[in-house]
Design a binder for these strands. Structure first.
Length: 912
RNA sequence: GCGGGCGUAGCCGAAUUGGCAUAGGCGCCGGACUUAGGCUCCGGUGGGCGCAAGCCCGAUGUGGGUUCGAGUCCCACCGCCCGCACCA
């Protein structure tokens, strides 16, 4: 064999691993399970199997986690390293709309491609644990968890979820209902409605994001800031609709607090905190003039209430029309009316205008403020002043109470509005001298604020809240940006929601043993709404046969829920199922859950930062519910999270902006040419649409899986995005070829390993390398680990034979990154296959240390000499070496001199 | 605007605690082997002087600060990336 033949060797070892079940991880209680070993759970964010297959940018995180998993196997851990597929979702369904092919068929075809590609790069998954969210044996448990959410309520007193039965028992024991009526006085329907109002999964009529093109409503999280669908970039409209909701807001505080102990990137923690958006403040009730009714506002600055010169409600605010006067009251300025003859007309017109205006426009910053006076005056509770109530779309209905007290002196938005509508501005916080801005939002003492004058912001807040509480006008409250999770979708390819609707609208959950509720077959996948923006939402399952849609129980006819779950559902708990994928009596066996999820849950979770908020927040929420109900043993699912960076690649566009195949573009004299025409280079993620993808199939055929793995790790830090540079691949190819030649005689295939011990220099390098690579492995610094192995390999060049101690350690260090070539060499070194469970090499701390180190000698502040000294030299010796140096002596003045020895770990000041 | 992060050679990048800045790779230059070629081998690669050992000088976005000593810590500024954004 003249060269290292990657095709032959990689196929050989992949076949070996599969036929020997090398990476199968037994569960507690299974044959071969060793309970004395520590466990590590290494998880990738499982993919949605798209029809395009993988390109080389996709597996970079998988390779990183695979190296981590392989390293821990060699360290003697029981390693859970599974893979599966998040296979419900829109693309397969949209493909079905076009082709009529059942989503199950396309999904299975795509999964087969993914598995072939993943296997071809030597990832050490335990494929026996493979799961698919679309498998009835899987979604049975997704539905089961939904039923637990339906059957639970959040007990705010203990801050955790409890079974509904507990709530019923408490009501029967005298717990007051929210409406204040005693439980015993309620009839069955009223009781049911009280209970339904407490469930973690509940139905509510809310304003939803309706996307006709996708034929479904979307969660806020799935709508871009331009008011379009994240998937497909279709227009989204606001519609009121009765929908399933999950009460994630109940967990807002715990979702924030529990972030602290997680070993997650700070940026992701920050994004989650930001998304939940907790702010402390006060709700304050402002009496409506001439009425007993109040407008309740939320503010984070109750201390500024003396400066509240007007109020604003959102256009969607449910202010009762009867409170709006028939004519413009005295004190109405012309600028406030919008030219309308009566308040109701002005309000109706403004509401209509807002509804027409897209979300995009509404959310655009720096848009000129619009609004209209409602004809209602309120009373400022502290000043007694008469202040107008406006309607304006800069106040959002979804946050706080949908109403604000406006303090233009201390808030930039309010200032802008006040200027436009000629409303009075009163400063209530003293700006620093020389402040010439408009609204002042900084620290300062209260002014123009009656009994608050002179107080700082914090103290003023405390005093005013006490004052309001004493008068029943307000209280301290906390507000969140986080909304409850809209959980219904009108699409076909998702988990059916296991609920029945009774003749009187009552909800009836399926029992656990009626699960799974199978997805029915339908004739047509095309949503009725698809081409009509004005169409109403219709659930796809209304196309199901009547036998499925109707259920008769005890003579009562029930209708099945026709909505399905969103794609996030399956990925909310898949990490639990991997611990015990075959269990058909529980979602996960207790022993398996406690063992694999023990201590920190998933020990390393690797995936893209695009899931920083949605998937990771939803999964944490479900996990906490399951934790509260006693189904899992840890409060958090993912102890350590790592976001791999993306592989970027140049893409090229011609003069019409059309992408041209990147591999056919040539660089000549600083100009990029495609078929002789100049094209423009752009950077970005790899993707089929940009015609710059490289598939693992072609790469593995040309260079091999080991080169792909090592190259992707060597490109740079795993968590930063970096460009794919085909030119650089050759360095890794050379490394592996050179390595092979160091070990194997090219012509005879003889093993070039000697029994002679390594010389001191090589041995020191070896032990330094082991130390560095070992540190790199746990820190996921694989780029530097590769560089260390390059360096060690370079030291072997020119040796006739590699000393065995070096060879053995080298192969073992190489194994996680380049497992095929490492297994081959390991076998040739005379070991049983495979190196996957060979012990990781240990280093000798003495040998790993540098043997000499440079001592820098400064005389009176200037470096005068650098002297190589042995590591571990004593202070006295170092001093005598330094003072013995002629160069140093030449600069001694005879006066007391300051001589400083600089030595790693030793600062030694000598005065002479 | 708020939050998170980053600026090191021609390019990708390294530098555990503040301690020889620039490891490793690409590219480039020179040489060897070869009829030829390069997924071969050897050497060089911040600038200057030197045949050489070596010597001198400069440099981690900019400007300050702390320190015997700063890529690393502190302050200000400049530039870039990511997330959120009329959230009261």
């Amino acid at each position: 064999m003249a060269r290292y033949d990657h095709q032959k060797i990689e196929q050989k070892w992949q076949a070996y691993w599969e036929s020997h079940g090398t990476f199968h991880a037994p569960n507690p209680g299974d044959p071969g399970f060793d309970p004395s070993r520590p466990k590590v759970y290494v998880l990738d964010m499982f993919p949605y199997p798209s029809g395009e297959g993988l390109h080389v940018g996709h597996p970079i995180g998988y390779i990183g986690s695979d190296i981590f998993a392989r390293y821990h196997r060699m360290r003697g851990y029981n390693v859970l390293h599974p893979m599966g597929f998040d296979a419900f979702g829109l693309p397969a369904e949209q493909y079905a709309v076009e082709t009529g092919i059942h989503p199950r068929v396309t999904t299975e075809r795509n999964v087969a491609t993914y598995m072939r590609q993943l296997r071809s790069i030597g990832l050490s998954y335990d494929w026996d644990r493979r799961i698919m969210t679309t498998d009835p044996n899987y979604y049975r448990w997704t539905q089961w968890i939904f039923l637990r959410l339906f059957d639970s309520w959040f007990d705010a007193e203990v801050g955790k979820a409890r079974p509904i039965a507990d709530l019923v028992a408490e009501f029967e024991a005298g717990r007051p209902t929210a409406a204040g009526e005693p439980w015993s006085s309620l009839d069955e329907v009223a009781r049911q409605s009280v209970i339904d109002g407490h469930r973690l999964a509940y139905v509510d009529e809310i304003t939803v994001n309706w996307c006709p093109a996708l034929g479904t409503v979307l969660a806020n999280e799935e709508v871009t800031k331009d008011g379009r669908s994240e998937r497909g970039d279709h227009p989204v409209f606001r519609r009121p609709l009765r929908q399933w909701m999950l009460r994630i807001t109940a967990y807002a505080d715990r979702l924030i607090e529990d972030l602290d102990v997680l070993e997650w990137p700070e940026s992701v923690k920050a994004m989650q905190r930001n998304w939940i958006g907790r702010s402390e403040g006060a709700s304050i009730r402002f009496r409506i003039e001439g009425s007993d009714a109040f407008v309740e506002v939320f503010t984070t600055r109750p201390d500024t209430i003396f400066g509240a010169t007007y109020m604003v409600i959102a256009p969607e605010h449910p202010l009762v029309s009867s409170l709006i006067p028939p004519t413009w009251p005295g004190g109405t300025e012309d600028a406030w009316t919008g030219g309308h003859s009566a308040p109701m007309k002005a309000v109706d017109a403004y509401r209509a205008e807002t509804a027409r205006r897209s979300e995009v426009e509404r959310r655009t910053e720096n848009r000129e403020k619009t609004g209209v006076f409602t004809g209602v005056f309120c009373e400022n509770p502290v000043t007694g002043g008469r202040i107008p109530l406006f309607m304006a779309d800069y106040v959002l209905v979804g946050y706080g109470t949908g109403a604000i007290m406006a303090v233009p002196g201390e808030d930039e938005r309010d200032w802008e509005f006040a200027e436009q509508f000629e409303l009075p501005i009163v400063r209530t916080v003293e700006p620093p001298a020389g402040f010439d801005g408009k609204a002042y939002v900084g620290e300062g003492r209260a002014i123009n604020s009656g009994f608050l004058d002179g107080l700082g912001i914090v103290a003023a807040k405390r005093v005013i809240i006490d004052w309001l509480v004493a008068r029943g006008l307000g209280e301290a409250t906390v507000s969140y940006k986080l909304r409850d999770w809209l959980f219904s979708r009108q699409r076909y390819w998702g988990e059916p929601i296991p609920i029945l609707h009774g003749p009187n609208g009552e909800l009836r959950a399926l029992s656990d043993d009626e699960l799974p509720l199978l997805l029915p077959e339908v004739e047509n996948y095309r949503p009725a709404s698809m081409d009509d923006d004005n169409a109403d939402p219709v659930a796809m399952l209304s196309n199901a046969p009547d036998e499925w849609k109707q259920v008769d129980i005890d003579g009562v006819r029930y209708r099945r829920e026709l909505n399905t779950m969103p794609q996030w559902a399956g990925s909310c708990w898949y990490y639990l199922r991997f611990a015990d994928p075959g269990n058909d009596t529980r979602l996960v066996g207790e022993d398996a859950e406690r063992y694999w999820m023990g201590e920190h849950g998933v020990d390393l979770y690797v995936g893209g930062v695009e899931h920083a908020v949605l998937h990771l927040l939803y999964a944490r929420f479900w996990h906490k519910v399951l934790f509260d109900l006693g189904h899992v043993s840890t409060p958090e699912p993912f102890g350590r999270l790592f976001n791999q960076g993306y592989i970027l690649a140049d893409a090229f566009q011609d003069d019409r902006g059309v992408y041209v195949p990147a591999e056919k573009v040539e660089l000549r004299d600083g100009v990029y040419l495609y078929e002789g025409n100049e094209v423009t280079r752009t950077a970005g993620r790899m993707g089929k649409s940009k015609k710059n993808s490289i598939t693992p199939d072609e790469f593995v055929a040309d260079h091999g899986a080991d080169t792909l793995r090592v190259y992707e790790m060597f490109m740079g830090p795993l968590d930063s995005s970096k460009p794919w540079t085909t030119r650089d691949v050759i360095g890794v190819d050379r490394f592996l070829q050179r390595l092979w030649r160091s070990f194997v005689e090219p012509d005879s295939g003889e093993l070039l390993v000697s029994h002679d011990p390594a010389n001191d220099g090589l041995r020191r390098l070896l032990h330094r390398t082991i130390k560095a690579v070992t540190d790199d492995m746990t820190a996921l610094r694989f780029n530097t680990a590769v560089a260390r192995l390059f360096e060690l390999n370079n030291a072997l060049v020119g040796l006739e034979r590699v000393p065995r101690e070096v060879a053995e350690a080298f192969v073992r260090m190489l194994a996680p990154m380049a497992p095929h070539i490492a297994d081959e060499l390991w076998e040739r070194l005379g070991h049983e296959p495979s190196v996957a469970y060979a012990p990781w090499p240990e280093y000798d701390p003495e040998l790993a240390r540098e043997d000499t180190v440079t001592m820098v000698v400064q005389v009176n502040g200037k470096v005068r000499d650098r002297i190589e000294v042995e590591v571990g030299i004593s202070e006295a010796e170092a001093r005598s070496v330094a003072l013995g140096s002629e160069r140093v002596r030449a600069f001694l003045s005879g006066e007391p001199d300051k001589v400083i020895l600089r030595l790693p770990g030793l600062v030694n000041v000598v005065v002479r």
